[in-house]
Simulated assay, not measured.
Amino acid sequence: MGAEKILIALVRDGEWTIKPDGTIWRQSRRIGNRHDGSSLLIPCATERAERLLPTGYLMVRAMRNGVRTNGLAHRLVWQHAHGDIPDGMQINHRNGIKDDNRPENLELASATDQAKHAHGSGLIDQTGQRNPSAKLSDRQVAQIRNAYQQGGYTMEQLGQRFGVSFQAISKIVRGKRRPKQGGPVAGDDLRHCVCEQDEATGRFIGKRVAGRLLDGVEHNGMPEVAHG
């Protein structure tokens, strides 16, 4: 018999009780003596059967035939209310509180559904430097924005200093990328931080990138290729 079936049997046999709020209770016993001098266990009080794990979930355990059996309380509560858990499915807490095992707070979910729920409800935060693909720390993002506001750096220089493209710098200082991180967000016209400016005419001198200039002038011609 599987561990969870052993624990469910304790409920069905009346040794444990699951209340409407999802808490699990058992009857504690003390050792007494019969008239003939033999020992017996005397029920004396009820106590919570769960204990809190570091993960935030509640665990239950019992000793049966000299073997200790462990299980997760929320899975036991769901099975008590609905029956066996289908293969490949898990039990999700709707409100994200892992020790809130009220039956109405529990639902069947696949591993994918659980991950979507955690991200969509903010229970898992992979923004900023927590994202495995992040190249910059939150501190570096704030440094970039402060350096841009104070002047003295082009985006290209900031990109070289922090090891990213100047396009990434542009999105960071405008708040289009990493919006939750600190540092002042810039205005819309950022050409002066990407391009050089002609002192005489005031015109921005663009850089050629992917067939166009960053000052907005399109260059659709094929580049000349040296032969030889």
Rank of each mutant, 00 (worst) to 15 (best):
A3S: 14
I8K: 01
I8L: 15
A9D: 04
P20I: 06
W25R: 00
R26H: 03
R26G: 00
I31Y: 10
G32K: 04
R34A: 05
H35F: 09
S39H: 10
P43M: 04
R51V: 13
R51E: 15
L52N: 10
L53D: 15
L53N: 15
Y57L: 14
Y57C: 11
L58M: 15
M59N: 12
V60W: 00
G66H: 01
G66T: 03
R68K: 09
R68M: 13
G71F: 00
L72G: 00
L72V: 15
A73C: 10
R75H: 11
W78E: 00
Q79M: 15
H80G: 02
H82K: 06
I85N: 01
D87R: 09
N95E: 06
I97D: 07
K98T: 08
D99W: 05
R102I: 03
P103S: 06
S110P: 06
K116P: 00
L123H: 14
R130M: 04
P132H: 08
K135F: 01
D138Y: 01
L158T: 07
Q160A: 11
S165C: 09
Q167K: 08
R177C: 12
P184C: 13
V185W: 15
A186N: 11
L190D: 05
L190A: 10
C193H: 13
V194I: 14
C195D: 12
E196K: 10
D198L: 07
I205W: 00
L213F: 09
L213R: 02
G216F: 02
G221H: 06
M222R: 08
